[in-house]
Nucleic acid binder design. Structure first.
Lengths: 114, 114
DNA sequence: TTTTTATATAATTATATTATTATATAATAA
DNA sequence: TTATTATATAATAATATAATTATATAAAAA
């Protein structure tokens, strides 16, 4: 992957955003799947506004994108972001988080949004 | 470099620490040179206690080590830390910071501590 | 021994962050 | 149209972070 070098300040901003367990895990999930808010609420057992606010922060710097599909809003990784190669490098250091989605399916809780 | 995979929580902790411009730059400097506190104070134009407190946070999780040499305390990167490969991957994304040290030398301000 | 220099720590203050509760909006279902 | 569902936003409260000022410690110099 191309090694993009950007300013210290920009990198620090991204690191601060990913320096939160919830947001870091969200990014790991979004790297492989798009997710809607209700799935994330289920996975993290956290209030809907809390999840929305984490997503907002990630969206504000353009790291994730949102797409409305009917009543649901799906979030996805912005792989065109100039920081995406940094994100990938970081995610390579944490364990796969996809089981969290699989568990949701098993529990049948796999929410309406599909 | 070996790709060490550790827990999400631990990675988030490191990212939060490096999610500060000053600490991120300190880490970039220490990756190539040991530095004493007074040099960092000069470079960052920041109070001595402020620098000491940043160093303390990095030391508390073991990312940096300190060595006393006479009246000075030199800080260095702990390259044996299990997170060091993550650190390296991150530092690859920011510009070289060594000129900051060179500037110090030029200014002749290159402090007593050598 | 006293003074000076380098650094750490404690106390404080200002600011930022995170989560909760309450409310608004937008789409669908009844 | 009204009710319901999914999500966002605003207000608030609790907590964390970062910087400053004041003080302590440890080594070296006088």
């Amino acid at each position: 992957m191309k090694q993009v070098v950007v300013g210290v300040e920009e990198v620090a901003t991204v690191l601060k955003l990913l320096g939160d367990k919830t947001r870091l895990t969200i990014m790991a999930l979004l790297d492989n799947n798009d997710c809607c808010v209700c799935e994330l609420v289920e996975i993290f057992q956290m209030s809907q506004p809390a999840i929305s606010q984490h997503l907002r922060k990630l969206k504000d710097v353009g790291l994730v994108k949102e797409t409305r599909k009917a009543q649901w809003i799906f979030y996805s990784m912005n792989k065109e972001h100039e920081m995406y190669s940094l994100i990938k490098d970081i995610l390579a250091h944490i364990p796969d988080q996809q089981e969290k989605l699989k568990e949701l399916e098993k529990k049948g809780t796999k929410i309406s949004c599909e």
